[in-house]
């Protein structure tokens, strides 16, 4: 599991862990059923407080990414749970919104945007 913490980002440490582990689950980098280090082992390895890692894991569990076993550790939950699907949907929406903002600034019309999206979808499914 890869977690890289920034001291100067202004984002709380637990938030950084949560985002990075969550992202790794979503990209499939952390596969379903994979074991994560225990809260205490992660705290030791990152040299941060136990309360911080506990909080990160608790929030990841609440969002359906992982399941924690008291005293043991945590493992990655299957991706198709409703909560994760919602997460992914939100990411799709956010991504498309960013694209639309850019399109507006570039002066692209509705048809242009749809054509680009179609093109991307075609190449995506050709490869698949």
């Amino acid at each position: 599991m890869r977690v890289v913490l920034s001291n100067s980002s202004g984002i709380p440490l637990y938030q950084q862990i949560k985002e990075q582990v969550g992202a790794a689950v979503l990209t499939g980098e952390l596969a379903e059923g994979e074991a994560l280090p225990s809260v205490r082992a992660l705290a030791r390895d990152l040299r941060i407080s136990i309360i911080t890692t506990t909080r990160a894991y608790a929030e990841l569990a609440a969002e359906g990414f992982i399941s924690t076993v008291p005293g043991k550790g945590a493992y990655v939950l299957p991706l198709d749970s409703a909560l994760v699907r919602e997460q992914l949907l939100r990411q799709v929406e956010e991504g498309l919104q960013t694209a639309l903002d850019a399109a507006r600034r570039a002066g692209l019309g509705r048809d242009d945007v749809v054509r680009i999206l179609d093109g991307l979808l075609d190449s995506e499914y050709e490869h698949a």
């Binding site: 225990s38 205490r40 082992a41 705290a43 030791r44 390895d45 040299r47 136990i50 005293g71």
Partner: peptide, 12 residues
């Protein structure tokens, strides 16, 4: 020292 404390605290 921080590492040693981390190891020690693996035990709840």
């Amino acid at each position: 020292l921080v590492g040693i404390i981390g190891d020690f605290l693996l035990d709840e």
